[in-house]
Design a binder for these strands. Structure first.
Lengths: 140, 140
DNA sequence: ACCACAATTGCAACAGAGTTGCAATTATTA
DNA sequence: TAATAATTGCAACTCTGTTGCAATTGTGGT
């Protein structure tokens, strides 16, 4: 089931299939939202070295399997790229939503980033949008 | 000249006037772009304790003198609020530009954040926009 | 100008995040 | 299954950020 998908993803990105990578990918697939390094460390149990987690995330980033989401509290979150982001470079702009109530961060795939007119001389390469507020689950 | 402006700013925000705060405000006023904690530590010379810089930035944030800019490299930057941002709460949404060439981060005051339609159930409280690309000075 | 009080600072010690080199282990390919 | 390449874990380290406390400095009233 999910194992197959995981191994396919790794293969497609020319990565060796190892326990650590499998486990981390599994965490991302199980979860809708984004994960921080410490989330992963916590949820993976005591099974993997901290360094391995760092290196795995680094590798996944470079291969374009995940992307990073800046936050205002100095704790980068990572989220799976649903569409294929070509290796290392994201041509897709992302809209991310952080819930002030539950802290969950999600990548809003359906929402497109509006184009913005910059002052003369500025060239846009990538746009990242960070919306904070109250998410669907917390809003009732 | 600048000293007057600095002291005024501090007084207006009910802050004691001290060497450290003066120096840090001066750095912000001299500089167009945003500064990270380590920028400040470096440029302030050896004169101030690291802890003082942290606490000063914290205080300035709370009083709304500066605002923080999330980045994807895990290093929060701070920038002066040109307009008065009411104490602690920013009702103004910001557009920030990070130059991939020189690394400078600036707060684009003239640019307004477009409103965005979120999926049902999501409530927006604040929007932060992060554009990376090539800035005016680096683009020739 | 001085005093009492409040606020700020520096120091020390600490917790956490992230990195690097290297040897041991594990995956891949042929 | 053996040879090679890639990944892992460990140890040690740096950098970032925080806290408590005592010493210092700023402020407002007299």
């Amino acid at each position: 089931m999910m194992e197959q998908k995981i191994d396919e993803l790794l293969k497609k990105n020319h990565l060796s299939i190892t326990g650590g990578r499998r486990k981390i990918l599994e965490l991302f697939l199980q979860q809708d939202g984004a994960l921080s390094h410490s989330d992963i460390e916590r949820r993976a149990g005591e099974k993997f070295d901290r360094v391995t987690v760092y290196r795995t995330l680094q590798t996944f980033l470079e291969k374009g399997l995940i992307h990073s989401i800046p936050t205002s509290d100095n704790s980068i979150r990572y989220a799976l790229c649903k569409d294929d982001c070509s290796g290392g470079q994201h041509h897709d702009d992302h809209v991310h939503f952080i819930c002030n109530a539950c802290g969950t961060t999600v990548c809003l795939e359906g929402v497109t980033v509006p184009s913005i007119a910059l002052p003369d001389g500025y060239v846009t390469e990538q746009v990242e949008m960070l919306i904070s507020g109250v998410c669907k689950s917390c809003n009732h």
